[in-house]
Amino acid sequence: MAQMTMIEAIRDAHDVAMAADDKVVVFGEDVGFFGGVFRCTAGLQEKYGSARCFDAPINESGIVGTAIGMAAYGLKPVIEIQFADYVYPAYDQIVSEAARLRHRSNGDFTCPLVIRMPTGGGIFGGQTHSQSPEAIFTHVSGLKVVIPSNPADAKGLFLSAVADPDPVIFLEPKRLYNGPFDGHHDRPLTSWKKHPLGDVPDGDVSIPLGKAKITREGADVTVLAYGTMVYVAEAAAEEAGVDAEVIDLRTLMPLDLDTIVASVQKTGRCVIVHEATRTSGFGAELMSLVQESCFYHLEAPMIRVTGWDTPYPHAQEWEYFPGPARVGEALKKVMEG
């Protein structure tokens, strides 16, 4: 067990995966010699050589497209898109190719591939360094979508993603890279190095995909969250004095519906929180599933607290980001319903 930031945990997870299997290859823009703009691949090229960890041209479709070819050959590519905001040029390769390959070839070819990308806002990243595009992946059959919220989960989920025989979109909330963040931007950051969740087990420890985690037990309302919003929801529950049960979904596809349903059937209320824009966001799917599965247990209409249906702004960061005040209001409102 060692104290690590999420960056160090992801780097450690790469190290474990690359040491265990020489079919694991790592590439992307700036990930080789330099070790990544967020340091997540630091030292890997030196340790494993430039055929296993290398820099790529600035061409997202090329990065994903070549990785699909490598996966079809039999390698296990782990590739990085520098920011989730820049994944769109690769969308054709991800949706039309990676996601469909097993199905369309009846398993003749498969695509074991991990596509890492830093996601989310709260860092004054403006329009193209803050987006949360998870819903454009959860909508695609054939993809798995993972988003960790702490260093230990990041390592465990990463190793499961690498071991998975299908393509996995691995979203890393960059706001959580160095420490947890509850939306109180006026307070100093606590490093993961001084946080209990910064304890990362050594070696090959995997956390299964498709399993949520209850991070705060509660009786009154279920909060469905992931990524940075887990900490915002926990803070909001304390500050609003609502006995909320916070569920960190961890994997959006496949979704741990059983844990969600058990919780909502217990609490009778549900608030859904995500940074992404509201309309057709993943919250809509969560709301539909809870409605279908828990209708007779619901004591109030569900509420979504999300980013607004606007591009992510710069100066108005904290009016956009769904912070603890907005989530707290929703918790109170759902208790009145």
Binding site: A51, M70, Y73, D92, S96
Partner: peptide, 24 residues
């Protein structure tokens, strides 16, 4: 390789497959 309806996609995949052969 499995044919896709999406044009051009396989051109870059072939390069990746070739890179994998070289890596290996």
């Amino acid at each position: 390789f499995s044919i896709s309806g999406n044009l051009g996609t396989q051109f870059v995949q072939s390069v990746g497959w070739a890179m994998a052969s070289a890596i290996s």
